[in-house]
Amino acid sequence: MMTPLTHYRKPKQFISNKLQRYSPRGLLIYFLPMALIPATIIALGKGNLLGIIVNASGFALYVFAAWCLRKGLQAETIYAQSPIVRAPKLPLKKLAAIITALATGLIAWLGARQSFPVALMFAGGAFLGMYLSYGFDLRQEKKIADAQGYSGDEILRMLEESSQIIRKIEQANDKIRNTELNQRIENICAIADRILAEIESDPRDFRRARKFLNVYLDGARQVTEGYAKTHQQTQSGQLEQNFRNVLETIETVFQEQHQKLLEEDVFDLDVKIEVLTTQLKREGIL
């Protein structure tokens, strides 16, 4: 009997990566210098050394510029989507614009044999074209207000670390071949993401959620990575059941934590965290 399609795990992360990778933005810079390929071949056939060097290096520069541009556009998408990502470190889009301008000036001057001032105008036009088409990189850091003795930077750093832990859990989940467990882990990650978004929108929640970020999230990562590693070596029903129990507890506690944040309840979840830690130790996972 065939498993209904709805029982299969939805590859959320995979789809979003593919969308970014296959977005057509920035591909123009790969296509526009295509004429340099026959130009290099013609120069090669005619033994025109300068032509070979200029056209081939110009093409390489354009390809590098296009690669930088696409990476910059991807980083920008991630920055715009996630509330807790810092601005990209390298100004990749600006770098792509500079390289494109340089390559265009070089090709116009040495390849197309235009005068130097005209070649400069070509370079300026290409730079302006890159700026108008794709803009430059966002350098503005996302600010989080200071709250309850914690600086905005401290909160942002903690949120970034937590976000990375969630991504690690998702990576470990990809290695687990069990639809039911996959679904549970995905739910846990989704709730954790919501909790982070909640803290980001109201940093006053940070103190209450600090232990969750420190202990629980990392506990969940250790458990998932540990299970992903061991279940490939040994197929134990008991291990799977233990892991299922732990996931159930984690999911419940995550939901409660999220609910507490929504209700702005001052009650701390310390007691429940102790219970989970004890359970993780009892199940032999921590």
Partner: peptide, 8 residues
């Protein structure tokens, strides 16, 4: 700019 320079 890029198209013209490369074609030329």
């Amino acid at each position: 700019t890029v198209g013209l320079a490369t074609c030329q």
